[in-house]
Deep mutational scan, measured.
Amino acid sequence: MDTYKLILNGKTLKGETTTEAVDAATAEKVFKHAANEHGVHGHWTYDPETKTFTVTE
């Protein structure tokens, strides 16, 4: 398992979190669910070198 990071750049919610996942696709599902639960919808990017997802509203 690897550690993946999410950076939230929402209009009303900003922050960072991490998750352990077997691959980037699994981490993305976890992060998108969490972002949706917090009402953050926007443009997603992924940097494979740093294993970091970013969502920007």
Rank of each mutant, 00 (worst) to 15 (best):
V22E: 12
V40D: 02
H38R: 14
L6W: 04
T3C: 13
T26H: 12
D47N: 10
V22C: 11
V55N: 01
T12A: 09
K51E: 01
D2G: 08
K5R: 13
L13C: 15
A24D: 04
G15T: 15
G10D: 03
V55F: 04
E16L: 11
H41I: 13
H43K: 13
H41G: 07
L13P: 04
E49H: 11
Y4P: 03
K51P: 01
M1K: 13
K32R: 15
A34S: 08
F31V: 01
A25S: 09
H38P: 02
A21Y: 02
T26K: 05
K14T: 10
I7L: 05
T50P: 01
E16H: 10
D47M: 05
P48W: 07
T12D: 11
A25Q: 11
K14V: 10
L6I: 04
H38F: 15
L8N: 01
A35T: 06
Y4W: 04
E20C: 13
G42V: 02
A24Q: 09
T50G: 05
T50V: 06
T12G: 09
A21S: 06
D47E: 10
H43T: 15
D47F: 05
A27D: 00
M1E: 08
T12R: 09
K32M: 10
L13K: 11
L6N: 02
A35Y: 06
D2K: 13
L13H: 14
H43S: 12
Y46P: 00
L8R: 00
E57Y: 05
T18C: 12
G39D: 06
T52A: 04
E37G: 07
A27E: 00
V40H: 03
D23R: 02
H38G: 07
P48S: 10
D47P: 00
E20T: 13
W44K: 00
E49L: 12
D23V: 02
V55Q: 01
E20K: 12
N36R: 14
L6A: 03
G10W: 06
G10H: 05
H33Q: 15
F53T: 01
K11Y: 10
K5A: 05
F53W: 04
A24R: 10
F31T: 00
V55G: 00
T26W: 07
G15Q: 12
V40W: 11
T18Y: 14
E28K: 09
G42T: 02
T54L: 05
T56W: 09
K32G: 04
